[in-house]
Write a protein that binds this DNA or RNA. Structure first.
Lengths: 115, 115
DNA sequence: TGCTTATATAAGTGTTTGCTTATATAATGG
DNA sequence: CCATTATATAAGCAAACACTTATATAAGCA
C-alpha cells in the first residue's frame, strides 16, 4: 500500500471514503485523542447502538481504530500505528477538537470509568 | 462553514466524501498542479467521457475545481481559493505526484494545446 | 443459574452512487 | 449552413450504503 511515504490511490481512496461520512468523521475526531466505548458514542452522537456499532466496525475493518476490551466494555481509539494514520490525522486536524464534547459527558455522569 | 481555521464537520464530510472515490482522487491529484480538459482525463484514466464529465461535475459543484473555457475545450484545475482547499491539499499530499502521467500524454502527442 | 448490561450481527428497506447508452449543447472550420 | 469535436446532461440500472428492528454473543453479578 505504501510507496515511499505515499499511499496507493486505490487503497487510500478507501480510507478517505470511510471518513467521508459525518458520523464516522465525528467518531474519528472523538477517538483521535480519547478512548470511548460504544455506549459513550451512542450518547455523544445521539444515534442507535447498532448504527454506531456498524460505523465503528467499518473503522476497525479499515484499520483506522483499534479496540481494547475491558470487562463488558470495548474501548475504541484511533490506531496511531496504522499505515493510514498520517492520512487520517491530516484530515481530522481540519475539524474542531472534540474534547469539550467528552467533558460534557463527564459532567452528565455518563462517562464510563472502570478503575 | 468555517470556524476559525476549522471546517464544520457536516460540510467537511461532504468534501471528504467527494474525494473518497479513486477516480475523483486521481482527477484531483492530476488537477492539483496541472490544468486538464475532459478529453485528457479520458485518456489518462481510460474511462468514458460521460463518466469523467460526471465526476468533474461533482468536483465543480463542491467547489473543489474551477473551469476555464478556451474555445472548444474546458480546462479544469483545483481552485486554490476554495474554502476547502487546505483540506483537499492535505489529502492529496499523501498520494503520488501525477506529473509523470501528464508527461506521458505529451509524449504520445495527446496533450491538448491551444496556443 | 438466571438477569442485566454492552456490543455485535443479521435481515429488511429506501436512498445514493457510478456506471452505461443516448441525446443535447456549444464552439470550430469547411 | 453543415459536419466535426468537445462537453454536458438525461434516463436506466445494478451495486453499495446507512439506517431500522430483531436477535445473538459476551461479560458481570445476585
Amino acid at each position: 500500500m505504501t510507496i515511499g511515504n505515499k499511499l496507493d490511490i486505490d487503497q487510500g481512496a478507501k480510507i478517505v471514503k470511510i471518513l467521508g461520512d459525518k458520523t464516522r468523521l465525528n467518531i474519528v475526531s472523538l477517538l483521535m485523542h480519547d478512548e470511548c466505548c460504544v455506549c459513550e458514542l451512542v450518547e455523544l452522537l445521539e444515534m442507535s447502538q447498532p448504527s454506531i456499532s456498524q460505523h465503528v466496525a467499518k473503522l476497525k475493518t479499515a484499520g483506522i481504530v483499534k479496540e481494547r476490551r475491558q470487562g463488558q466494555w470495548i474501548f475504541y481509539r484511533v490506531d496511531p500505528d496504522s499505515e493510514a494514520f498520517p492520512l487520517v490525522e491530516s484530515i481530522v486536524q481540519h475539524f474542531p477538537n472534540q474534547k469539550d464534547r467528552i467533558r460534557e459527558l463527564e459532567v452528565k455522569g455518563l462517562r464510563v470509568c472502570c478503575d
